[in-house]
Amino acid sequence: MTFSRRQFVGTALTAAVALAVGPGIARAELVDDAINAFTGGADMETGGITLIAPEIAENGNTVPIEVDAPGAESIIIFAAGNPNPSVATFNFGALAGSAAVSTRIRLAGEQEVIAIARMPDGTFKMARQNVRVTIGGCGG
């Protein structure tokens, strides 16, 4: 099979675009799938949940975050740009003093951190924050 110059340029362009866009789309799908697995596709309100993360994190290996969603029974955290976007799920029990928690997470690079709270009445609340990372935290 012989390629004309036009065909060749077209194929090369398509391949280049697929390479550049592919991982981004795959990741967005991963995050959407993970969010849907938690919410069952329900609508989410903003507000009623606070996510505190640094705007710029020097070291992606340990980024301090804080989430507070008064009254929530469960909070899930996603890092949209990580190879595996799920970070942690907090289920609060009968003796939880508040639906708030602080921890430290890894971020592979600049990306959005997403926190979603499930309320006892079955509604969901979401907060997002973009974090810039100077040194990524997923090795390599």
């Binding site: 290996n61 970070v87 907090f90 602080s102 921890t103 430290r104 997470i105």
Partner: peptide, 25 residues
């Protein structure tokens, strides 16, 4: 009685640290 139950993924940092509140009856 449960205070908090956390499911942890690899995106949690080395030396996992958690701070949370508990009611003491």
């Amino acid at each position: 009685e449960t205070v908090v139950d956390v499911t942890i993924e690899p995106s949690v940092s080395t030396n996992p640290y958690f701070q949370f509140d508990a009611v003491v009856p």
